[in-house]
Every structure is written in structure tokens, then in C-alpha cells.
């Protein structure tokens, strides 16, 4: 099958291993990725911080280009790009005046009919149903699935998973043999766009995320966003410094996790490109699990 594809800038640079692993996984499942022709940057945080119309026009151009190429469903693996494009589509669909204005800025027609999906939705929809028999190496690790902000918020627009306690990625990990850990920082912010301009804040925020993952015994942090990856991986020295601890949990993309389970090589998946070396420890043998008490269904009985 064919799927529209918007890689976004960072996939060409800082997170090329994400692209490599997305490509590898898609290939394994016969998904042909058709890049949006002559795509541009979505404008990221910078654009909407500085100028609203620009922040809408840049993503709108991408969508218009996709429409022109007849791409009805577009995979956007970068959570930030996914968010910007989704929000743009929503805002323009809600406001005809704005839509007209943006169309005139673009000098292009724009309908807003393409459906946009993020990487986890794509995996959920096209990979999981065909997973049977493909897993050659169980992903036997305690994994902290980190969703970040932009996959789940604003929920009213993205309508993806449960905004406070998402589970889709955990489910993917479980399906490939992994054990997702219960932890508290699934949707906390990593500091995102302030990585360069306010590194100390990012060190703090990312540090707390990494720390919680470590404290819960995670052996790997799984992400679905280049920005998150950057902050949790490349900024590890800074965050370790902030934490005054040396945490060496590797951070990998969800597609890399799937690739590993499919038996792909580290090189194929670009694991060597990470700052924190990807050394995956096996999940320890657990003592026979204590049978959890039967789930109590609380019923609030009332009079009559």
C-alpha cells in the first residue's frame, strides 16, 4: 500500500536514524512512503511564537502540496510536525475567513481534506495487524514509553489516545514482547524548542523525565518525536549534571524498537547515531508474580 509521507526537517539531519528506522519498518510491512513533493519546514515553535499567519501558512503549503499530489493520508512521524499540521488543518477548517486568507498567501488551492496520522497511529493501523510471525527477537526490555506533549495535546484537535494517560505506544511495546513500565512522566514536557536557547531548562525538564524512567527500573526509553529524542539523548550530559547522577538509559524511537524485534541490525536502524549508547539490558527474571487482588469495581450504591 501507499502512504503519504512528510518527514520534516529533523529527519534529514539530527534524527536521520528515525527516518531510517521508519523506512525500514515500513518496508518490512510493504508500506510505500510517498514523500510530499517539494515539502518545506512546518515552521515549528518558532513560527507560531512569532507570527500566526506564518505559522499557519507553512504547514498549509505542505498540506496543499500533498493534496495536489493526491495524497489522502499522510504519515507524519515527527510529533511536532504532526501537531503543527493537525492544528493548522483544524484552525483553517473551522474558520473560512482564515482559510481564504491563507489560500491567498499561498497562492494555491487548499481544501483541508487529507487525513493526518502520527507514527503510533500508523503502527496501530498498518503494522500491528500484520505483526503475526514477524517478531523474531522479543523486545524483552522494561521500557518507559514517552509520548511527550505534542502527540496528545491539544486533545480536542488531535483526538489521539487518552491525553493524561496514553497507552497506544505501551501496547505496541507489549505486542513486540516488551514490558512497558508504569511511570509518571509519559506526557510531561521535555523543554522542546528551548533546547538551544534555554538549555538549563531543558536539562531540568528532560532530567526529571529520565530520572523517573530510571527510578522505575526502565531499561530503555521509547519515544516518537525527534525533539524529545534530542532532549533526552543528546542533552543527557546536561541533564545528568542537573540531576547529579549518571543515568545511561538509552533512548530509542518506537520504530527502532519494532526494528529490533523484527531482527534488523543496529546499523539498519541507525542505533549507532545515538549519543547515549544503545545497550539494551534484558529484563530480569521476575519472581513468580503475586496474583493481584481481583480488581475492585467500586459501586456507589444509593437509596432506591
Amino acid at each position: 500500500m501507499k502512504l503519504g509521507f512528510y518527514p520534516g526537517c529533523s529527519m534529514k539531519g539530527g534524527s536521520r536514524e528515525y527516518k531510517e528506522s521508519v523506512a525500514a519498518v515500513c518496508k518490512a510491512f510493504d508500506i510505500e512512503l510517498v514523500e510530499v513533493p517539494d515539502w518545506n519546514c512546518c515552521g515549528a515553535t518558532a513560527a507560531h511564537n512569532l507570527n500566526k499567519e506564518l505559522a499557519l501558512s507553512l504547514p498549509a503549503r505542505i498540506l496543499a502540496q500533498a493534496e495536489k499530489a493526491g495524497l489522502s493520508e499522510i504519515l507524519i512521524p515527527c510529533a511536532a510536525c504532526y501537531n503543527r499540521l493537525s492544528v493548522t488543518q483544524h484552525e483553517l477548517n473551522e474558520n473560512d475567513k482564515l482559510k481564504e486568507r491563507v489560500k491567498s498567501i499561498l497562492g494555491m488551492d487548499y481544501q483541508g481534506t487529507s487525513s493526518i496520522i502520527n507514527i503510533i497511529q500508523m503502527i496501530d493501523k498498518y503494522v500491528l495487524p500484520n505483526l503475526d510471525g514477524k517478531v523474531v527477537k522479543s523486545f524483552n526490555h522494561l521500557a518507559a514509553c514517552y509520548y511527550g506533549c505534542l502527540l496528545v495535546r491539544p486533545h480536542g484537535i488531535l483526538k489521539f489516545d487518552r491525553p493524561e494517560d496514553p497507552v497506544t505506544m505501551d501496547n505496541v511495546i507489549r505486542k513486540i514482547g516488551g514490558s512497558p513500565v508504569e511511570w509518571a512522566y509519559k506526557v510531561e514536557c521535555c523543554g522542546a524548542g528551548l533546547s538551544v536557547s534555554k538549555t538549563e531548562a531543558v536539562a531540568r525538564l528532560s532530567g526529571k523525565i529520565v530520572e523517573d524512567a530510571a527510578d522505575r527500573g526502565s531499561q530503555v526509553i521509547v519515544v516518537a518525536c525527534p525533539m524529545c529524542h534530542l532532549n533526552l539523548d543528546m542533552r543527557r550530559p546536561e541533564s545528568n549534571k542537573y540531576l547529579k547522577r549518571n543515568i545511561d538509559i538509552p533512548v530509542i524511537y518506537i520504530t527502532q524498537a519494532i526494528g529490533i524485534a523484527l531482527g534488523m541490525s543496529g546499523k539498519e536502524l541507525g542505533l549507532q547515531r545515538h549519543f547515549v549508547p544503545v545497550i539494551l539490558k534484558e529484563k530480569p527474571e521476575e519472581p513468580a508474580p503475586v496474583k493481584p487482588a481481583k480488581k475492585v469495581v467500586q459501586t456507589q450504591e444509593m437509596e432506591a
Binding site: C9, S10, C41, A44, A46, A47, N49, L50, G193, V196
Partner: peptide, 16 residues
């Protein structure tokens, strides 16, 4: 940073 970012896009269309 934001300005540098946008200037980059202005010039190249993509972030570099």
C-alpha cells in the same frame, strides 16, 4: 533562535 530558525526556512525552505 526563533528568528534564526525562520530566516533559515525563508532562505532554504527547510531547517538546516
Amino acid at each position: 533562535f526563533h528568528r534564526a530558525f525562520l530566516d533559515m526556512i525563508d532562505k532554504t525552505g527547510r531547517m538546516y
